[in-house]
Design a protein around this nucleic acid. Structure first.
Lengths: 213, 213
DNA sequence: CGTTATGTATACCGATCTGTGTGCTTAACG
DNA sequence: CGTTAAGCACACAGATCGGTATACATAACG
């Protein structure tokens, strides 16, 4: 989904301007925010003519939406796909983000754009719902009595940690992880709350830091 | 703190332009965000000359900082000062915000300004710390084993609910309140987790909606 | 090779932004 | 009443914004 756009036929011979634009957007939007990043600066960083930029994207709004859609595949893949972990470990791994992760770009976009009708805002909504759904799915695997509720709760914790980290300018994910542990243990009736070693999975445990957030 | 500024002497006879400016800022910044509200529009709403606005505030940044400082006294006063409630009820009342409360203005400012050094960002940090401190204080009253931890956890829940409400465009505070109830009951050793009626306070319980957020 | 799509360079447009400067009106206080 | 400061109306400066137009270069494909 990252290589075959815009060409009705399968030709396409360009030098990859679109990728450079999206790459620059990802960098600058995270570093400076969306509103504080002008198209001139963005094109300069991407080493792309302004004309070309507006040939690939209908406007800045369109670019922002595409910038957000680009996260879909690579945000929490290393969290949910790890079959070498118990469901409980996978749920907790969602809070194991590298220190000083900027800010969830979806929250940033929703706040900066300030328009629920904006395509990027709808994209952010969809993504947040998807994350909650995957958490709920994993919660079901873990044997939670109310997986949907636990998924929504954990999603709220992630957003809270991300937003609060931004405001306080200090890491908040450990706090969220502690809450998550309590909620998870409270939601799983079979497992004893303070006994994490009753997992039925084969391979052992490895403290791997998760990717995005 | 809201009526005696700017005059070296105690004279002052103006028609209250400063108050109108701050009032308009409070309205517009919440409705449209900070960056999307120009000084022209703000002055028009406040029915104030632009010249006068820049006579009261050194610049927009200064105005934003003042706008945030103005919340300090009146955000969660009706939550912590209610002596007719048990500490536990007071903690939970912090999550009883009226539906569709816009977004915590401090989170909004921190995200929109995107500069931790900005006076308004520092103000937001101070406020968030103060809220956590008051929650911790109340948690101590409630007999929590680790009041500071519980205060920080509840503060994170509030921020998470506020941010997530904005992104999802649907109310998230009930979810946060449910988590809070679990955390509070888990943190208070004396009270049994599923028995809220063993409070030692005199007056009964009244489901009153709290003020700000 | 020649066509065609893709990209570059640059200038420009109108709108909007924060912030000032000038001159006039009006209200408060002695 | 007269002084004085607060406020108003309006124009303007300088910068930046998103977006467009024109003209030229180049790479890919037939």
């Amino acid at each position: 989904m990252t290589e075959l756009e815009k060409g009705p036929q399968g030709r396409r011979r360009g030098r990859g301007a679109r990728e450079r634009i999206l790459s620059a957007a990802q960098q600058l939007f995270r570093e400076q925010g969306i509103n504080r990043t002008g198209m001139d600066q963005l094109c300069a960083v991407a080493q792309v003519s302004k004309h070309t930029a507006y040939q690939h994207f209908a406007g800045k709004d369109d670019l922002v939406a595409e910038y957000l859609r680009r996260f879909d595949p690579d945000v929490l893949p290393g969290v949910f796909d790890r079959t070498d972990r118990t469901p409980r470990e996978r749920l907790l791994a969602a809070f194991d983000v590298p220190a000083s992760t900027p800010l969830c770009p979806y929250i940033g976009a929703a706040v900066e754009l300030h328009d629920p009708q904006h395509p990027a805002s709808e994209c952010a909504r969809d993504y947040k719902k998807a994350i909650a759904a995957r958490l709920a799915e994993t919660a079901r695997e873990a044997g939670a009595t109310n997986p949907e509720q636990l998924g929504e709760q954990l999603a709220l914790l992630i957003d809270g940690a991300s937003a609060r980290t931004r405001v306080l300018d200090s890491e908040c994910f450990p706090t969220a992880a502690a809450i998550a542990a309590v909620l998870i243990d409270n939601a799983i009736p079979a497992s004893s709350p303070r006994q994490p070693s009753d997992d039925r999975a084969t391979t052992g445990s490895a403290p791997v830091p998760a990717g995005g957030q």
